[in-house]
Design a protein around this nucleic acid. Structure first.
Length: 278
DNA sequence: ATGACAGTCTGCGACTGA
């Protein structure tokens, strides 16, 4: 159609690029976030760990760059947001299954238009350490709720992308030191088994679908020179249902933001979805 | 080497994260 092409859509050629990034405080990271939005110009950005209530989100700076915005925030910790060049229709701002859970870790919205309509979720799965604690139980329960919800989403005839910080390294090849991390909540069989259960539902790990290599990471600890040594973990993921996977173009980890001053300890992962072919 | 991280607010120390 003759619709005007918005700035930043050139690389997508009518498709759209969806990125997930744990920014570790949207206020502390605002210059980094704006630099990234200006240079990469994703059509959709799924942010985690904004660490502020929705009313404190730097809305104007984002909207000035042509993004619509949806936020599920809370004071001090957690918090997720979705930025999109096209309007957002929020579907839910909490993960169903536990009315008593007030942590802001899940936000789901429908965005895109015409042949590029897509349902996206920005999710921040609990860390779960130390293993054996109530935090670990919360992580596994949260993952069980995500599995149940992901199953209900399969009934929809639309593309679905569940993106964010899963706090799970799916396999030893996603960890710089698998032996050292064997008993960590990010690598435990209980965590990995639930991640695999998502794949068994039919969701596709977009990065793994496009890359066979091991030793590619999305997170590097601030301490002990982990970034300079490239000692990290791949824990941020884009999971695609079949409708989305059928449209999957490239999927890449953008290491650029991790190397900048005042960086988050995570870096973005993004994928490109082409137009629906029908 | 008496060190070597970075957010948050309960704020000059404690808590959380991965």
């Amino acid at each position: 159609m003759g619709r005007a092409t918005a700035p930043g859509r050139t690389a997508a050629k009518g498709g759209l690029r969806i990125a997930a990034w744990n920014v570790n405080s949207v206020k502390a990271r605002l210059p980094n976030l704006l630099d990234w939005l200006d240079s990469f110009t994703p059509e959709v950005a799924l942010l985690q760990e904004i660490k502020c209530p929705a009313e404190d989100f730097p809305r104007l700076e984002i909207e000035d760059r042509g993004y619509n915005l949806a936020v599920a925030g809370q004071k001090s910790y957690n918090g997720v947001a979705i930025l999109s060049k096209t309007p957002l229709e929020v579907a839910r701002d909490r993960l169903p299954g536990d009315e008593g859970d007030d942590q802001a870790r899940y936000l789901e919205a429908v965005t895109g238009s015409g042949r590029t309509v897509v349902r996206v979720a920005s999710l921040y799965l609990p860390n779960g350490n130390p293993v054996g604690s109530d935090k670990f139980a919360y992580k596994l329960a949260w993952m069980d709720r995500l599995l149940a919800h992901a199953r209900t989403l399969l009934a929809l005839d639309e593309a679905v992308v569940l993106g964010g910080d899963y706090n799970i390294a799916p396999a030893d090849g996603d960890v710089y030191d698998p032996e050292g991390w064997r008993d960590d909540a990010l690598c435990r069989p209980e965590s990995r088994g639930r991640f695999r259960a998502l794949l068994h539902l039919g969701y596709v790990d977009a990065w793994r679908a496009r890359h066979a290599e091991v030793g590619a990471f999305t997170y590097w600890d601030y301490q002990q020179g982990r970034w300079n040594r490239d000692e990290g973990l791949r824990i941020d993921h884009l999971l695609l249902n079949a409708y989305a996977a059928d449209r999957l173009g490239g999927c890449e980890i953008d290491r650029g933001p991790r190397g900048k001053p005042k960086a988050s300890d995570h870096t973005p992962v993004w994928c490109e979805l082409g137009d629906a072919g029908w």
